[in-house]
Design a protein around this nucleic acid. Structure first.
Lengths: 345, 345
DNA sequence: CGCCCCGGTGTAACCGTTTACACCCAATCT
DNA sequence: AGATTGGGTGTAAACGGTTACACCGGGGCG
C-alpha cells in the first residue's frame, strides 16, 4: 500500500540530516565524520574540511538524545523545586544558572509540590536526561526517601533535613538568623515578642522557630505559646496572624515573621487597624526579598544569600559529577546577616 | 588486562537496571516488558503482574534518552530566554510551567544573551532533547535568523519582531499600552511629556516609543527630540535620565519610562533633588512589576499579563506539537491595561 | 474438519550517535 | 630487505528502549 520510505508523502520532506547523510555527502564513513566534528581522533586536514563543509551545507545538528545514550553524559542538570513562584525562586534559579552556564550545562527544570508521588514522578522523568540533580524539599519525609536512593546520579539537597552522613546538602543558617534577629529585638527592650511560624512540616520553619525560642531563653524571657502564631509563608497567613496578635490582651510589642511575605501581610493588618509601626509594634521578617526595602515602613529582615545558595549547590553538584569528591565538603551552611530598617529600629 | 564486563571492579556494582534485566527477572522478552509497562499491547494479567513486580524490585526506571531516540518524542520543551533575572523572568517561567505541567511536559531552560553565537549554540544543544521551543529574542537580527529555520521542531517567539507570515509569535500590545498611558497624561493637561527609551535594538522599546509619539501626535502636542532620553531598561539608566530631565530649561511635567525599573530610577533622582512627585513632575512606567505598588509614591504603570504571556506561548507551542495547527492563530497580541497610582494621578 | 481470527508472546530491526578494533599503507628502524 | 611504527580510515558493535512482524495455540465458523 504505502512505500517504506518516510519521504513518500512529499517528494522533498525536509528531514533533519543525520551523521549518515553527512558521511555520504563527504564520501567518508560515519566514524570519520564523528572524529572530524569532535576532534576525537586523527583526520587528514582536507578530509576534515570536506566533512565540515558537508555538515554545514546539510545544516547537520547532532541528536542530543542519541549522543547521550552512548556517552551516558547529557550535559544537563536537573532542578527540582517545590514551586516556581516569586522572588525566592527567581533568585535561586539565577544562582544555579550562573554556575551551570559557566560549566556549560543546561538546566532541566521541574516543579513538584511536596507530594511524594509528584516528586517521585518528576524524578523518574528526569532519569537518563540529566547528569545530576539539585533538589529542594523542605518537607521532612521526602528527604529521607531520597537519601537512600544512591544508585547513580548524584544529588544535592537544598534546605532539606537530610540526616544521612554522606548526603550532599546545603542550607542557610536558619537558626542563627532567627536567633540574631530576636536577640536584637530583646536588646531593644522588647518583652513580649511574637512569632508567625511557617508550615509545621517545613524544615526551615522549624529551625527559625528554634532560633526564636533559644533567643528568648538566652534573653531571660519566658516562652509563651500564645505568642506563637501559625502561618504557612503566605501574605494572607501573615495578615491573619497580624489581626490575631492585636486581639491579645497585652498585645506583643514586636512581631517576628518567619518570612517576609508574612511580615508584609502583618504590616497590612496593622496599618488597617491604625497601629503605628514601629511605634506601637515593631515588625521583622526573614529572607530580605527585594520588596522588603520598598514597603513602608521599610522592613527589617534577615538577609539570605539566595542566589549564592543556588550557585553553591550547583558547584557542589558539579564537583560530584566530574569525579569522586572525596575531600570536598558535603555539608555547607551559608551564613545570614541582619538587615535593620525602619520597621524595627 | 581487564575483563570486558563493567562489573569487574566491584563484585556488586549497583548499576541501574535496564529493561533487559527486568525481562530476565520476569522470564519474558523485552517486548513484553515494554508492552506491560506502557499498556501498549495485549499482555496476560498474571504476566503483567510478574513484570510489574520485577520492575519494582529492580527499581527499574526507563532511560529517557533511549526512549526518545526511537519514539522521537521527548516530553520536554525548550525555553530560551535572554536573561534569568528579576520579576519578569520569574513570572514568565511561572506561566510557561503552569501550561507545560498541565500537559505533562518538562522544561529545558537556557539563557543566552542576545548574541548570535550564544543563541545558536543553545539551540544546537537542545536539538534532539526537546519537542518544541519557546524563544524570546527582542533583538531584531536573531528573530530573522530563526524564522527561516523551518526544518522540524516548532518554535514560538515571544516579543520578537518576526515578520515571516507563518511564524508563530506572541506579543504584548506595546504600542497600545504606551499610547494609552501617554494619552492619559495628555488628558490630565501635561504639555511637556518626556520618555525614557529602551535599548535601540529592542523591539519592545521601539514599539513603546512609537506609542508615545502617536499619542503626542493625536493629542496635538509637538514632538521634541530633547524630551526623548536614552535608556537601557536598567534602574541606573532611569536615574541618569531623571537627572538629565531636571536640567532641561522648562523641565517636563511628566516622565514616561519605557519600563518600571527605569521609572524607579527616575523617582530616586527626583527625590534626591527634592522634586515633588506628582506635584512638580508626574512619573509613569511600564510592566507593572510587583514592586511598583510598593514604591513611594506608588507608581502608575501599564500592566502586562506576564505569566499569561508565558502560558499562552506554551499553549501555542503545544498546539503545534500535537498536530498541524492549520486553523489556529499564529499571531497573538495580548492586551495591556492601565494602572493609575499616586505617581501620576 | 479445515479455515480464519485473535490474544499473547518472542525475535530482531531500528533510532543516531560514539568508539574498539581491524586494516592499509607509507615512513622509519634494524 | 623485512619488521615495526603510526596516521588515516572503515566496519560493526554497542547504548536502552519501541515496535513491525512472525509465530503459536485455541475457539468460532462454514
Amino acid at each position: 500500500m504505502s512505500t517504506r520510505s518516510p519521504r513518500s508523502r512529499h517528494p522533498e520532506a525536509p528531514r533533519q540530516a543525520t551523521i549518515r547523510d553527512v558521511a555520504r555527502a563527504a564520501r567518508v564513513s560515519v566514524a570519520t565524520v564523528s572524529r572530524a566534528l569532535n576532534d576525537s581522533g586523527p583526520v587528514r586536514d582536507d578530509t576534515r574540511r570536506r566533512v565540515r563543509d558537508a555538515a554545514d551545507n546539510l545544516r547537520f545538528t547532532p541528536h542530543g538524545g542519541a549522543r547521550s545514550l552512548i556517552t551516558s553524559r547529557t550535559n544537563t542538570l536537573g532542578v527540582l523545586l517545590p514551586d516556581l513562584y516569586g522572588e525566592f525562586f527567581s533568585e535561586i534559579i539565577r544562582g544555579i544558572d550562573r554556575s551551570a552556564q559557566r560549566a556549560g550545562y543546561q538546566l532541566l527544570l521541574s516543579s513538584a509540590r511536596n507530594a511524594h508521588d509528584e516528586v517521585h514522578g518528576a524524578f523518574r522523568a528526569m532519569y537518563g536526561r540529566v547528569d545530576g540533580l539539585v533538589l529542594m524539599a523542605p518537607d521532612v519525609e521526602l528527604a529521607e526517601l531520597f537519601a537512600q536512593h544512591r544508585d547513580g546520579t548524584p544529588i544535592v539537597f537544598i534546605n532539606s533535613p537530610v540526616t544521612s552522613e554522606d548526603a550532599r546538602v546545603i542550607t542557610i543558617d536558619n537558626h542563627g538568623g532567627a536567633y540574631q534577629m530576636v536577640k536584637h529585638l530583646v536588646r531593644k527592650g522588647h518583652q513580649r515578642i511574637a512569632i508567625i511560624r511557617g508550615a509545621e512540616s517545613n524544615h526551615d520553619a522549624a529551625e527559625r522557630l528554634r532560633g526564636y525560642r533559644d533567643a528568648l531563653d538566652d534573653g531571660g524571657l519566658p516562652r509563651d505559646p500564645r505568642l506563637e502564631f501559625h502561618g504557612d509563608f503566605t501574605e494572607t497567613a501573615g495578615y491573619r496572624a497580624g489581626r490575631a496578635a492585636l486581639k491579645l490582651q497585652p498585645h506583643p510589642t514586636a512581631i517576628f515573621a518567619a518570612n517576609d511575605a508574612m511580615a508584609i501581610g502583618a504590616l497590612s493588618a496593622l496599618r488597617e487597624e491604625g497601629v503605628a509601626v514601629p511605634g506601637a509594634i515593631a515588625v521583622a521578617g526573614f529572607d530580605d526579598i527585594p520588596i522588603a526595602r520598598y514597603v513602608s515602613p521599610p522592613l527589617s529582615s534577615v538577609h539570605v544569600p539566595i542566589a549564592q545558595l543556588g550557585e553553591r549547590a550547583m558547584d557542589l553538584l558539579l564537583g560530584a559529577i566530574v569525579g569522586p569528591d572525596h575531600g570536598a565538603a558535603r555539608r555547607v551552611v551559608l551564613p545570614t546577616t541582619l538587615v535593620i530598617r525602619k520597621s524595627s529600629p
